[in-house]
Design a protein around this nucleic acid. Structure first.
Length: 283
DNA sequence: ATCCTATCCTGGCTGC
DNA sequence: TGCAGCCAGGATAGGA
């Protein structure tokens, strides 16, 4: 599932392909993709606009739009499970599962395809306002070990669902949370208010190193779903230590990786490297 | 404040 | 071989 590293890869590959191009026409084949606007009013907002920049916030892809002289709002995209952006030549056949297409002024077409139809591409006047509720970027300097320790202690939630909460930290999903917790030696059910300062530091380091490595490898592709805009798979799946490895030996200690369900999410961990939390004593 | 469940979707898998 | 039923999973809403 596309998480921060996959979205970052999409943004990097898309930038040189679309920045400077303008939108001549839009074709909507699954209106819910637009998240509220009708195809007609969506088309009115974006037709004639030019892509000024492509950037990322959490798992969201933001396209800044301009018209001659003035800003023209933003497209805010989310890939969810199976969304994908890709460019094609105007004469090429429309790919399967295409939900939305932007015909550009150089005769190329930017397609948003999405088998499961959960993805969204919304037009908004103000992207920062739309995404204001998101937590800090885990690769920014604002996300420090000290901040993380304080933030963990200020809540009382299990680490797994807390790290998946985009309002706590933006961009982590099921895969990178499991991988980060394993690298930090922290059990997914541990209560956030019981994480020590050294453990917070390990978690901080683990999150940044996992994300950094995954970005360098252009994300993770373990099924047909995620491909970069250039159509290539990522390679970080070869570095998974726990995700999808239930029953296999832990790469660090050899114990069998376990899979449990936490908050309706498959959760993978090593029972030896990630010690079960102690029951909270009453008092 | 935190937790739990349902919803949106489809392809792929399991079991009969 | 065919088919019904279940599952994954990000975000969000509503209820406990």
């Amino acid at each position: 599932m596309p998480e921060l590293p996959e979205v970052e890869t999409v943004v990097r590959e898309l930038t040189p392909l679309v920045v400077g191009r303008s939108i001549e026409r839009v074709r909507v084949s699954w209106p819910r993709t637009l998240g509220g606007l009708t195809p007609r009013s969506f088309g009115r907002r974006v037709r004639g606009a030019r892509f000024a920049a492509v950037r990322r916030r959490g798992k969201y892809i933001i396209f800044d739009l301009h018209r001659p002289g003035s800003p023209a709002g933003h497209l805010v995209g989310h890939l969810r499970m199976s969304g994908r952006f890709a460019l094609r030549d105007g004469g090429a056949p429309v790919p399967a599962y295409t939900r939305l297409s932007f015909m550009l002024d150089d005769d190329s077409v930017l397609d948003f395809t999405d088998m499961r139809k959960f993805g969204r591409v919304e037009w908004v006047p103000d992207a920062d306002q739309r995404l204001a509720a998101l937590g800090p970027e885990p690769l920014d300097s604002s996300f420090s070990a000290a901040w993380l320790h304080k933030a963990l202690r200020g809540r009382r939630r299990q680490l797994k669902p807390l790290l998946l909460d985009q309002e706590f930290v933006a961009g982590l999903g099921n895969i990178y949370v499991d991988e980060s917790l394993h690298r930090a030696g922290l059990h997914p059910l541990r209560s956030s208010d019981r994480v020590s300062r050294p453990a917070s530091q390990r978690l901080h380091e683990a999150i940044q190193s996992v994300l950094g490595e995954a970005i360098r490898m252009k994300g993770s592709s373990f099924d047909r779903l995620y491909r970069t805009p250039e159509g290539r798979p990522g390679a970080f799946q070869n570095r998974f230590r726990v995700y999808g490895r239930a029953g296999d030996p832990c790469v660090d200690c050899g114990a069998r990786v376990r899979r449990i369900v936490v908050g309706q999410r498959g959760t993978h961990f090593c029972p030896r490297c990630q010690r079960a939390p102690q029951a909270r004593s009453r008092s």
